[in-house]
């Protein structure tokens, strides 16, 4: 594996007196899609926001060695790391093209209007998210799933070395869920590092190179999905029992019962 793009060392986080994360060691390398799973409140979003530089750690460090970001250079960080918030808000009724174009802001100055290169990146990001023909549509008139794709396209338009996506397929129909997961995988295999928070364990198994399970403020399991998403881990970390299966080389995990306390 190549050198990590982002490495997290003994990271702890708390909100007031509540500890959210404790002693987290984790890294994402170029070329891999890492699935971040865990029950609600396990600290997935907190970890992602810290890696994006949006939240200060209480203890521990985060290093960006192979991204060459000097401390305090927000714009360089913004060009290298794209962050896709969970259920991202859109506050004004701008066009789809304008919104996706906001992914190019880190590449422009305070008064820049965008170059041909920026327009190409926007067009490519829109095509990747199946948004052909949506250019002039108003974002506030789109369905939830369409908005989610527009917001993903906005993050892709950054052309980041690392994409940190918080539940990128939430609210999407099955076809677009598969498409977005495939897109994240393609992005990783084209050389980016991708970390995605997700809840669908079948997606985690099928698309992720590696899965990290957060439980009780720390990492409970980490590795190749097939190896670590075991019945024991599911029972302990998610409180569920699941059906495991495989057909035509495609594995799936379907939670079916709550595990006995």
């Amino acid at each position: 594996m190549s050198a990590p793009l982002i490495a997290v060392h003994s990271l702890s986080a708390s909100f007031g007196a509540t500890k959210v994360l404790e002693g987290i060691n984790f890294a994402v390398a170029a070329g891999e899609l890492v699935g971040l799973v865990g029950s609600n409140g396990a600290g997935k979003t907190t970890l992602l926001r810290m890696m994006a530089g949006l939240l200060e750690a209480t203890a521990g460090t985060i290093t960006y060695d192979s991204l060459n970001i000097s401390a305090g250079d927000n714009q360089a960080r913004a060009r290298a790391i794209a962050y896709l918030p969970q259920a991202g808000a859109i506050h004004w009724a701008v066009s789809v093209e304008t919104l996706v174009g906001m992914g190019r802001l880190p590449h422009m100055g305070a008064f820049g209007t965008g170059t041909e290169r920026d327009r190409q990146a926007v067009a490519a990001a829109m095509a990747a998210c199946d948004l052909g023909g949506y250019e002039g549509r108003t974002v506030t008139n789109l369905s939830g799933g369409e908005k989610a794709r527009v917001l993903l396209a906005r993050a892709l338009a950054v052309e980041p070395k690392v994409l940190l996506a918080d539940e990128p397929v939430a609210g999407l129909d099955p076809a677009h869920q598969l498409e977005v997961m495939q897109k994240l995988r393609d992005l990783a295999h084209a050389g980016a590092g991708v970390v995605a928070v997700m809840h669908d364990l079948t997606h985690a198994t099928r698309y992720c190179d590696r899965v990290v399970v957060l439980y009780d403020r720390s990492i409970a399991a980490e590795g190749v999905p097939g190896d670590i998403l075991t019945p024991d881990v599911l029972a302990k970390c998610f409180g569920v029992r699941a059906l495991y299966g495989e057909r035509d080389g495609r594995s799936f995990i379907v939670p079916v019962d709550r595990a006995e306390g």
């Binding site: 926001r49 994006a52 530089g53 949006l54 927000n74 714009q75 960080r77 913004a78 060009r79 790391i81 794209a82 962050y83 896709l84 918030p85 991202g88 808000a89 859109i90 506050h91 004004w92 701008v94 919104l99 906001m102 992914g103 802001l105 880190p106 422009m108 305070a110 008064f111 820049g112 917001l151 906005r154 950054v158």
Partner: peptide, 23 residues
């Protein structure tokens, strides 16, 4: 006048705006 771009970014909310490099 220098704030225009950061206001554009804020269309996406505060976290996204900060992730786009705005303090």
């Amino acid at each position: 006048a220098f704030l225009g771009r950061s206001l554009d970014a804020l269309t996406l909310g505060e976290d996204a705006a900060r992730s786009l490099g705005y303090n």
